[in-house]
Amino acid sequence: MNSLIDALGLDLRILIAQFVNFAILVFVLWKFAYKPVFKILEERREKIKKGIEDSEKSEKRLEEAESEKNEIIAEARRQANELIEEAKGKADIRYQEIVNKAKGDLQVVIEDEKEKIASYRKQAFNEVKKDAAILITSALEKILDEKIDEKKDKEIIENIIKDLN
């Protein structure tokens, strides 16, 4: 057995040295290679996860904003339409009012004018009657040339005018 150990070149001191070296190697690799690599892998995984989540979130937010925008636009349009409708209605009413008022005013004016015309006509008629009476009296005076007494004369004329009416 001893010669086999010699043949294999086993030396306890070398074995111990190699064992210690190997243990140090395991420890150093664990401390300085595996652990940091796992840590950084984990960190990167977290970061990527976070990035994906963030992008999803922002996409969602964008969608929300888009829909909100559309909603707002639709609302604004609706309101504008409403306003226009209202304005139209108001304008119609106002128009009607104005027209009615104008019509009323016109009526009043027309009535006025009519009255005025009527009164003018009456006046004119009366004046014409007076003139006609004077004319007729003068014409009759000239024709008859002789004045019956004034009283009788006036009576006759009035009778005639009454007849004329």
């Binding site: 690799l29 290679a33 690599v37």
Partner: peptide, 9 residues
């Protein structure tokens, strides 16, 4: 190996 590990770290 050891230098590589330290370098990596």
């Amino acid at each position: 190996f050891i230098i590589g590990a330290l370098f990596l770290k």
